[in-house]
Simulated assay, not measured.
Amino acid sequence: MSMLFLILCKTGLRHKLRMLPGKMVNTVYSDEEKGIQDRESKEETILAMLGIIGTILNLLVIIFVYIYTTL
């Protein structure tokens, strides 16, 4: 029973050791967590780009309205 538990733990998680200056950090990520982090990263990038595009469009509208009202 304990061997089965150890095998399930070993195959379910991937252990990664990363060397940092003066420290050794053990980070454990499952494939699902990596996928979720990648997806969230892509969503944040898309939302940031939409925010920048929206800001530029708002500035263009303000400029055109200013020019239209002053003529």
Rank of each mutant, 00 (worst) to 15 (best):
I46N: 13
V25L: 04
D38T: 00
T27F: 06
I67Q: 07
L50W: 13
D31I: 06
E33R: 00
Y66C: 11
L59P: 03
D38L: 00
M24C: 13
S30L: 03
I63P: 01
T27G: 05
F64R: 03
R39Q: 03
S30K: 00
G22C: 07
T45I: 13
T45M: 15
L47R: 13
R39N: 02
N26K: 12
I52E: 10
E40N: 12
E32M: 01
S41M: 11
P21H: 03
I53C: 11
N26C: 11
D31P: 07
G35H: 08
P21K: 03
M49I: 15
G51D: 13
L47F: 12
N26A: 11
E44V: 13
E40Y: 04
I63T: 01
E44M: 12
V28K: 06
G54F: 04
I67Y: 09
T55E: 05
S41R: 03
L20H: 04
L59Q: 03
T27S: 10
V65F: 07
L60P: 01
S41I: 01
K23N: 09
Q37R: 02
L20E: 04
K42N: 14
E43A: 14
L47N: 12
L20A: 04
D31C: 05
I62A: 13
G22D: 06
R39M: 01
V65P: 02
V61D: 07
T55I: 13
G35E: 07
L47G: 08
G54S: 10
L50K: 15
G22Y: 13
F64E: 05
D38A: 02
D31M: 09
E43M: 14
E33Y: 00
D38R: 00
G54R: 05
I46E: 14
L20K: 03
L57A: 08
V65G: 01
G35R: 04
L57V: 12
R39V: 00
E40K: 06
D38E: 04
Y66I: 07
I36G: 00
N26M: 14
E40V: 01
E43T: 13
P21W: 02
N26T: 14
E43L: 15
Y29R: 02
I63F: 10
L60V: 05
G35L: 10
V28L: 12
I67P: 03
V25H: 05
V61A: 07
M49H: 14
L47D: 12
I56T: 06
G22M: 11
K34V: 02
T45S: 15
I36L: 02
G51E: 10
M24I: 14
L59N: 03
L60Y: 08
T27D: 07
K23R: 07
Q37L: 06
T45V: 14
T55K: 08
K23G: 07
G54N: 09
L47V: 10
I63Y: 06
L57Q: 04
L59A: 12
N26D: 11
S30C: 07
G35T: 02
Y29M: 05
N58K: 04
M49Q: 15
V28W: 09
D38Q: 00
